[in-house]
Amino acid sequence: MLKINDLHCKVEAQDGAEKFILNGISLEVPAGEVHAIMGPNGSGKSTLSYAVTGRDGYEITEGGIEFNGEEIGEMAPEERAARGLYLSFQYPVEIPGVPTMIFLKEALNAQRAARGEAEISAPEFMKLAREKAKQLSISMDMLKRPVNVGFSGGEKKRLEILQALILEPKFLILDETDSGLDIDALKVVASGVNALRSPERGMLVITHYQRLLDYIKPDVVHILAAGRIVKSGGPELAHELEAEGYDKYIGEAA
């Protein structure tokens, strides 16, 4: 489903200097599987999520990204989104002045239009939003407020998952979804994510800590260090990391 081939990526910093952050990542996540990416700070986890979703400034210098057999490495972020790629942000962005409901309806209809599907009507959309919001204990009042403005950390992460439930992407990348969450919020978010698990959908769960993986059970765990995958294994690898830390992998990569 998602196939990353020998991906090299450089990032242009604010001062114009270029920095290579991904140094040849290869990874394949078939439909129906959940893969976890674990790694220390600065290992390239967030860069990987931005490179796959097409953020400006993240330039692919070698290798490529295939999604459902199509090379997407040169596509605009909105084109990748319309094909079903979804990124749950580590730090969801506040957009003052744009009510969440309007934002969500714009996004859904833009994706539908890009796929040649008919627009969803306002009443249909309301019904859909109400039903999905309920699953995540999000009030309709919250959805009238501007996107993420004044939301707590937990509310922001719940809203990320609500958007996924409404947009129904084919593939989810969850970037540090557990950061800033207390245990109750984590359970709500994880149950939302688990509701999205299906044989047709793949997921990449990026996390620093093993904790999230107790709630979202991965099929495969990859360890990322210095922009490369240094080890892959089953769920037990996450526990091993939790016990032993990242030190030996940092050494290996350097």
Partner: peptide, 12 residues
């Protein structure tokens, strides 16, 4: 914010 909106499918 622009990237966030585009990632949700809203054209540039």
């Amino acid at each position: 914010a622009l990237f966030y909106m585009r990632q949700r499918g809203i054209p540039l």
